[in-house]
Every structure is written in structure tokens, then in C-alpha cells.
Design a protein around this nucleic acid. Structure first.
Length: 826
RNA sequence: GCGGGUGUGGUGGAAUGGCAGACACAACAGACUUAAAAUCUGUCGGUCUCACGGCCGUGCCGGUUCGAGUCCGGCCACCCGCACCA
């Protein structure tokens, strides 16, 4: 074995051998259990950052570990390759987005390969490849056929910087998720996917996701935002119109003192027509609608409204109440109109107080009765119904049900479940995305492009600085076509799809990535999916993870997959931090993975990242920590080198009973390490503690060396072979290299994961802590497995214990075998 | 406001209710060396003590328990998500 560890030489060597031999190529094999491990595929921005390295290192440990445990492992990689930066680069640098993207992919793929990741590169996909987006379009048409893709005119989120619309999920605090500029509302006709049809299943099936972090499930639950209530209408007699309202507090309906419409509500104009209020209301509506999302919806925005001059009738009591328009009512939620109950709703209280509207108490707390005059805010707790006609005297929770019943029997309303979730706006006015495969015909309307004509390819020659319309709109060759139904001249849709569509199904494509007849073969897909372990950043807690769950459910309904959920287990890794902040260009605290790999090698980089912190927590980058990881690998190399000659020719077996104390201790350390590493990796993903126990084993080997007069070749062979196999998932190159230099057969990555011998871990004697009243007062060494009774006896006999107990009464003794004795005295 | 999370040495972090601080980083000391680097070994929470040893210590206050970093209740601080969703 070589004396020196030179990662620069061994790493590229093994990377080439693994690639040339197809070491990580995977096929369906029904004789083995399958395991699908997946890291979120990256956007090809140009170079890997440390977050990527962390993500892939975690996934690679899992993949290599499960492979050694006998699973048929699918571990693919690809590219989320459509998106804005490519287009911005095109505008700025006059490079075509395709060229920019493909060269970034080549660079990042090289960087990944230099990390020694065990991907099956034969399965690589890129969403911008026509053979991929062909199926993205095919799936869009599947949604279209199933009535789940539709076009509507709506006030949508518009980012001026990106020149495109955004889905609700992509607006963060009123700003664009990508460029952070302010999002405004714009009235446009756009394509939507009906994710709201699946709201209930998306919510319910969160219960199936026991392998997901609670935090992510909660975030999705909040986002979906289910609420139960009732919808009913207020009549507007003067117009013969109805105003439907949605409420979760139908029990407070007798407390209604006004009705409010959202400024966008179509009835507003009818209500004010010809009234003296008309001009002022119009001006108010105009002003509110021009506000940005954030200025409009922040909680601290003051409530503002105007009386329309019209009145509506409360169906419960026949009372006429004024109709207002106000900024705090959302048009998109519920019915776009709400009933105002100032006494029992905080927002209505504030509004009514500001405009001098009546407040009427209908839920009372008899013990300490409320009065409007003495209340300093709305009461939204439980109580007894008052001022509510036939419902008086009921507790308000019961009244909720009875009043919903009443609405239904009277035929003026019904129970209703409402969601906060909105349909997914998927049109994008951009070039670098999958074209929406729709053709507009004057006679036939929106017609699907026939599936055999897919893909609708992106034209090459377009201008990218088109402004507020898609660059495709300027490509005459692209737009003009014939209607597939009637053959008349027609126009293509010029918007492309949100890139989150492309990433909502890539994990299915990996199971059959070169299929030219279908998005995937159902049998292959069903063999592999769902993904057993998905790994990625928390930033996709809603976005990508919600969309993918939606896609999976639609595909299940269509018979294309047999799973309800795409990702069985989810690991959300923490950020990589330096000097207390996320690594970023603007902070100037970036450490380049490529430079670290050049300087120390991939094994060191991986080991440091896995050792420095458990995967879910943020990881503080430390240059000295990296040095430490490199030092450890060198130390491991040297101790193995020290024993190499003994190991090479050593017999495969030995008699464990004949070992001396020093040898026995090494054997104990080895088997304890195997157990610890196995548990840490398999059950808990605690790679940091797994690595620390491998370090302890190396320390134990040093201790053995220092204490041993002669060496025991067979024991050392067992120790080194197991050590290398434990190390292999974390630092694959060095493990493989030493394996080969010690003349072991085959690749280490084809070896079985080591098993521990429970007998070897047992010790003859154990140290027992003796406590008196919970404080450690003595320690004694006793044979292991000594019974509680024996232990108690021995402990009480100790001289020191007797001194301390002298003159006191022993009340109780707790003796835990192999652990401690606690003597309670008075 | 609602929901979730985190809080342990100089630092990253470790502890199925059972010796708090494993394993590292940094620091200090020793060995090797002409010397340095590298390497190997050792010390390393605070405090009192020449020492033996004692006392204190896991954000704060209380509780359960023979025993609490860990479980329960109440606070505080920070982070994340949602937030006029009726």
C-alpha cells in the first residue's frame, strides 16, 4: 500500500473507472427490493454552490448505503433547465438561451462528476430538451382533456422586472420569488390548472406523509387553508339582484349591520348607477385596484370603505342593511362579499367603529354579560345566542348547525367548504419554457395540438426583448398555423408554461427516461415509485412539493401511476452559512466547491459537510473544519497503511475466544461502530454522529497499535475491511482506493454492508455510577449484567458509600443494571 | 395575531429519563526535528482548593420523578411559514 494519500490522483481515476464500467447503471430487477433516492434537480445556473454539494452528498450516502444493503437503487440526476436567467443572459450577452443553458449543464455535470456522486447518468434528463418538453406538453393536454386546464380572465400577479405573470405560490410577501421586485395586479386572460379540485385530497393525504417533516405538512395545510361555513344571499330588492356571502360564523347572522363587497365585485357598478355616491365610489374602487398586492393586503393597512347608497335584506330577520364597498374584502376568496358583524368580528369592529356603523351583540356570555358600550373590541369566543329570534338560548356552536340547516330548508343558502388555495396560473409571457400546445381558431376556439404533432418546438430565431408579451408573439412562422379541427388559418398560443410544471413530473420520467412513445412505461414507473427518499431545500415546502403532489394525484386518476403521493420520505436540508449569513454574492461570503475539491479532494469536502452538522440544521462553513476532515482521512490512511502488510495476507477467520484484552477491545470498538453507523444512517440520517463513531474506531486502532506487542492479522483484516465499508458511502474514493491497494476483490461499492456481532459488543465488566440522592458520589466496576439486587448489595458495601450514609436512613435504592445505583437517604 | 422550530463550553456539535459536553475545530503543553511544518501524545465548562476533593452549570421560573438538557405547565429571545381568507 502506498504511504501517502493523494486525493488528486485517486479521485479522477476512480471516477473514470466507475463511469466506464457503468458501476451505477440501474435496471428494473424484480428479484431485489427497490429503493429510489432523489435529490431535487438543480437549475443550471452555471456552477454548483455549497448548498448543492450538501444536497448531493446526503443523497449519495443514502444511495450507496442502500445499495450495499442489497437494494436495487435508483439514483438519477437531471436539469430543471427552462427559466428566466437563460433568457436574461440572452438579452444581456447576446447568447441564445439554449446555448447558455447547455454549456452551464456541461459545467455543472462535470462538477458533480468530480464529487464522485453515484448517479446513473444514462437516465439524465433536461427539461429544455424537446424530447422532454414534448411530454410536458403531452401532460398539459392530458390536464386539458380532463377539464383541469382552462383559460380565464382574471386580475393576476404581474412582475414588471420579469415581464411575466406569477402563480400565488410564487409571490413572497408581495414580491416576486425570483427577482424580489414588487408584484402588481393586472387583468389578463391566462391558463390555469385546477389545483383547487384537488384541495381536499391534497389536504387529507398529508396524513399519509408520516415521513415528511411536520413543518412542511403544516405549511401545506396552512396554504390550502380549508374552512367550513355557509353561503347564503342577501336580496337587493331595488335591483332584483342577490349578493351571496360566505361566512364561517353563520351563528352571528342576526348581528349583521351591513354588507361589504370587494372593489372588484361586478355588482358594485350596478348598485351605484344613478346614485349620488356613484362618482366617489368609482374613484375609490379605481384607487384601491391600482395598489400593489402588498399595499393592499398587509394587515396593518387601514380599512377603508364607502357606502354605495344601496341596501340589502338579511334573510334571517328581513332587515335592510347598507351595502358598502371596502378594501379589506378579497374578491378571490369566498364570494367576494361578506356580511358585517362588528360585535363578533375584529375586522368588522374596526370598520364599523371608523364609519359609525351599528354594532349588535348576538352571542352573549351570561356569567359576565357583555355590552357593546363596555366592549373594547369584537367578541369572537363561544356563548349563548341572543337577539337571534328562534335561535335565542342555544349555545352558538349548536346554533351554527341549526342555522345552516335553516338556510338549507328555506332554500336561501347551503353549507360550504372553502379553501384559501387558488388555481395555479401557469402561463408565462416568456420564451425559455415549454410552449403551451394550444391553437386558437376563430371558429373552433382553443384547440389542442394533436398529440402526434408534439413537441411544439421553440423557434430558434426570436427577439428576447419583446417587453410585456411573449417573445414567441414576434415569431410569425411559429404563430401562424392551421386549425387541427377545421383546417382554417389559426394562431398558436404564444405563452410558455411555468417551469414548475416541468419539475412536477421529472421524477416519473427518470424511471423510463428515453421512452419515445409515452412519458414513461407504467410498469417501470410503478416498480420504482414513489420516491423512497427525497432530499432538498425547505424553500420548496409549498411550491414544488405541492405542485408535484397535485400532478401525482391527477396522474393516478388517469391511470398513469399507481401512487397517491410522489415522495414517501422527505428530508429538508438546512442552509450552508458562513459568518452567520447564507452564502451569497452580495455578502461576499461564497466558498467555491470547485476550489475546495481542487485543494482537498471530493472526499474531504463531502466528509466535512456531512460531519459539521446534522442534515436538517443549518451548517456553518469552517475552513478549519475542512482541514480537520482532510486530516482525519490522512490519519485513517496512515493507520491502515501501518497494518497493511498484516492485512494483505491475513486469514479470513479467527477464534474470537482466544483474543487478548487489547485485541478484544479493538473488536468491541469495531462492532460497536458498525452498529452505531448502521443505526445513524438507516434510521436517523445522523451522518455527523456516524462519522464521529468512525473517527472513534480509527482512534481505537491507534490505541491498539500503541498497546499491542504483536499484531493479530485476522482481526486487523476484519477491522480494516469493515472500516472501509463503513466509510465508503461518505468518502467513496479513498475507501475504494485502499480496498484495491489491500488486494481485496471487486469494488468496495459492491460489498455487503457489514453486520455487527452483539456478543462482541458486550464487555466483561462495566463501570457503575453510585449516586446518593441523585448526586454522583462513587464509581465501581462490576461484572456486566449484574442483577439489580446484587448491584444494590455491592454499592451499599462500598466504604465511601457507608461513610456518606452513616447516621442517615436509607429510604430507597434504585439499581439499574449496567448503569447506576441511586441511594435515597434522609 | 395564528402555526412550526431553535436555545448546551471559546466554536461546530453529542447525549433510548440515568456520569452533561462524545467526536471535531480552536487554544495550550510534551515528543520527534538543527528549526519549522507535518505527525504522534496529553490538557482543555466555570469556580474554590497546594492537593484530595467540593460547589455551580444545558435561555428563565415552576412542576413531575429516586433521578430532568431530555417529560409537563408558564415565560423570554431568536428564526421560519401564514396572515384583513370573513
Amino acid at each position: 500500500m502506498n504511504e501517502k494519500y493523494v486525493p488528486r490522483e485517486i479521485e479522477p481515476k476512480w471516477q473514470k473507472i466507475w463511469a466506464d464500467s457503468g458501476a451505477f447503471h440501474t435496471e428494473v430487477d424484480r428479484t431485489k427490493p427497490e429503493y429510489y433516492v432523489l435529490e431535487m434537480f438543480p437549475y443550471p445556473s452555471g456552477a454548483l454552490h455549497m448548498g448543492h454539494v450538501r444536497n448531493y452528498s446526503i443523497g449519495d450516502v443514502v444511495a450507496r448505503f442502500q445499495k450495499m444493503r442489497g437494494y436495487n437503487v435508483l439514483h438519477p440526476m437531471g436539469w430543471d433547465a427552462f427559466g428566466m436567467p437563460a433568457e436574461n443572459a440572452a438579452i444581456k450577452n447576446k447568447v441564445h438561451p439554449a446555448e447558455w443553458t447547455w454549456s452551464n449543464i456541461a459545467n455543472m455535470r462535470r462538477q458533480q462528476q468530480e464529487l464522485g456522486l453515484s448517479y446513473d447518468w444514462d437516465r439524465e434528463v433536461a427539461t429544455c430538451h424537446p424530447e422532454y418538453y414534448r411530454w410536458t406538453q403531452w401532460l398539459f393536454l392530458l390536464f386539458f382533456e380532463r377539464g383541469l386546464a382552462y383559460k380565464k380572465k382574471a386580475a393576476v400577479n404581474w412582475c414588471d422586472e420579469c415581464n411575466t405573470v406569477l402563480a400565488n405560490e410564487q409571490v413572497i410577501d408581495g414580491n416576486c420569488w425570483r427577482c424580489n421586485s414588487v408584484v402588481v395586479k393586472k387583468e389578463l386572460e391566462q391558463w390555469f390548472l385546477k389545483i383547487t379540485d384537488y384541495a381536499d385530497r391534497l389536504l387529507k393525504d398529508l396524513d399519509l406523509l408520516g415521513g415528511w417533516p411536520e413543518r412542511v405538512r403544516t405549511m401545506q395545510e396552512n396554504w390550502i387553508g380549508r374552512s367550513e361555513g355557509a353561503e347564503f344571499s342577501f336580496d337587493v330588492p331595488e335591483l332584483g339582484e342577490k349578493i351571496p356571502v360566505y361566512t364561517t360564523r353563520q351563528d352571528t347572522s342576526f348581528g349583521v349591520t351591513y354588507v361589504v363587497l370587494a372593489p372588484e365585485h361586478p355588482l358594485v357598478e350596478k348598485l351605484i348607477e344613478g346614485k349620488s355616491e356613484a362618482a366617489a365610489v368609482r374613484a375609490f374602487v379605481e384607487r384601491v385596484r391600482n395598489l400593489s398586492e402588498i399595499n393592499r393586503t398587509a394587515t396593518d393597512v387601514e380599512k377603508e370603505g364607502m357606502f354605495t347608497g344601496a341596501y340589502a335584506v338579511n334573510p334571517f330577520n328581513g332587515e335592510q342593511v347598507p351595502i358598502w364597498v371596502a378594501n379589506y374584502v378579497l374578491f378571490e376568496y369566498g364570494t367576494g362579499a361578506v356580511m358585517g358583524v362588528p360585535a363578533h368580528d375584529e375586522r368588522d369592529w374596526a370598520f364599523a367603529t371608523k364609519y359609525g356603523l351599528e354594532k349588535r351583540l348576538v352571542v352573549q356570555t351570561p356569567a359576565t354579560p357583555l355590552t357593546i358600550a363596555t366592549m373594547d373590541g369584537a367578541y369572537d369566543g363561544t356563548g349563548v345566542m341572543v337577539n337571534s329570534g328562534q335561535f335565542d338560548g342555544l349555545d352558538n356552536e349548536t346554533a351554527k348547525g341549526k342555522m345552516a340547516d335553516w338556510l338549507e330548508t328555506q332554500g336561501v343558502g347551503r353549507r360550504r367548504v372553502t379553501y384559501r388555495l387558488r388555481d395555479w396560473l401557469i402561463s408565462r409571457q416568456r420564451y425559455w419554457g415549454a410552449p403551451i400546445p394550444i391553437i386558437y381558431c376563430d371558429d373552433c376556439g382553443a384547440v389542442a395540438v394533436p398529440k402526434e404533432e408534439l413537441p411544439v418546438r421553440l423557434p430558434e430565431n426570436v427577439r428576447f426583448d419583446a417587453g410585456s408579451v411573449s417573445p414567441l408573439a414576434s415569431a410569425g412562422d411559429f404563430i401562424n398555423c392551421q386549425c387541427p379541427k377545421c383546417g382554417k388559418p389559426a394562431r398558436r398560443e404564444t405563452d410558455t408554461m411555468d417551469t414548475f410544471i416541468c419539475s412536477s413530473w421529472y421524477y416519473f420520467r427518470y424511471t423510463d427516461p428515453r421512452n419515445a412513445k409515452a412519458p414513461w412505461d407504467v410498469n417501470k414507473c410503478n416498480y420504482w415509485t414513489p420516491v423512497d427518499q427525497y432530499i432538498g431545500g425547505i424553500e420548496h415546502a409549498i411550491l414544488h412539493l405541492l405542485y408535484s403532489r397535485f400532478f401525482t394525484k391527477v396522474l393516478k386518476d388517469a391511470g398513469l401511476v399507481d401512487t397517491d403521493e410522489p415522495f414517501k420520505n422527505l428530508l429538508t436540508q438546512g442552509m450552508v452559512i458562513k459568518d452567520g449569513a447564507k452564502m451569497s454574492k452580495s455578502k461576499g461570503n461564497i466558498v467555491s466547491p470547485e476550489e475546495i475539491v481542487k485543494k482537498y479532494g471530493a472526499d474531504t469536502a463531502r466528509l466535512f459537510i456531512l460531519f459539521a452538522s446534522p442534515p436538517e440544521r443549518d451548517l456553518e462553513w469552517s475552513d478549519q473544519g475542512v482541514e480537520g476532515a482532510a486530516r482525519f482521512l490522512g490519519r485513517l490512511w496512515r493507520i491502515v497503511h501501518h497494518f497493511a502488510d498484516a492485512v494483505v495476507g491475513a486469514p479470513a477467520t479467527y477464534d474470537a475466544a482466544s483474543l487478548d484484552a487489547n485485541e478484544k477491545e479493538l473488536r468491541r470498538a469495531l462492532h460497536a461502530t458498525i452498529r452505531k453507523v448502521t443505526d445513524d444512517v438507516a434510521d436517523r440520517f445522523n451522518f455527523n454522529t456516524a462519522i464521529s463513531s468512525i473517527m472513534e474506531l480509527v482512534n481505537a486502532m491507534h490505541a491498539y497499535r500503541d498497546a499491542a506487542a504483536t499484531v493479530h492479522p485476522a482481526l486487523l483484516r476484519e477491522t480494516v475491511e469493515a472500516l472501509l465499508r463503513l466509510l465508503a458511502p461518505f468518502a467513496p474514493h479513498i475507501a475504494e482506493e485502499i480496498w484495491q491497494q489491500l488486494e481485496r476483490s471487486g469494488s468496495i461499492h459492491q460489498q455487503a454492508w457489514p453486520k455487527w456481532d452483539a456478543e462482541a459488543i458486550k464487555t466483561d465488566s462495566v463501570e457503575i455510577v453510585v449516586q446518593i440522592n441523585g448526586k454522583v458520589r462513587d464509581k465501581l466496576t462490576v461484572p456486566s449484567e449484574l442483577s439489580s439486587a446484587e448491584l444494590e448489595k455491592v454499592a451499599l458495601q462500598q466504604e465511601k458509600v457507608q461513610q456518606l450514609v452513616e447516621g442517615k436512613t436509607v429510604v430507597k435504592v434504585i439499581a439499574v443494571p449496567n448503569k447506576l445505583v441511586n441511594i435515597v437517604v434522609k
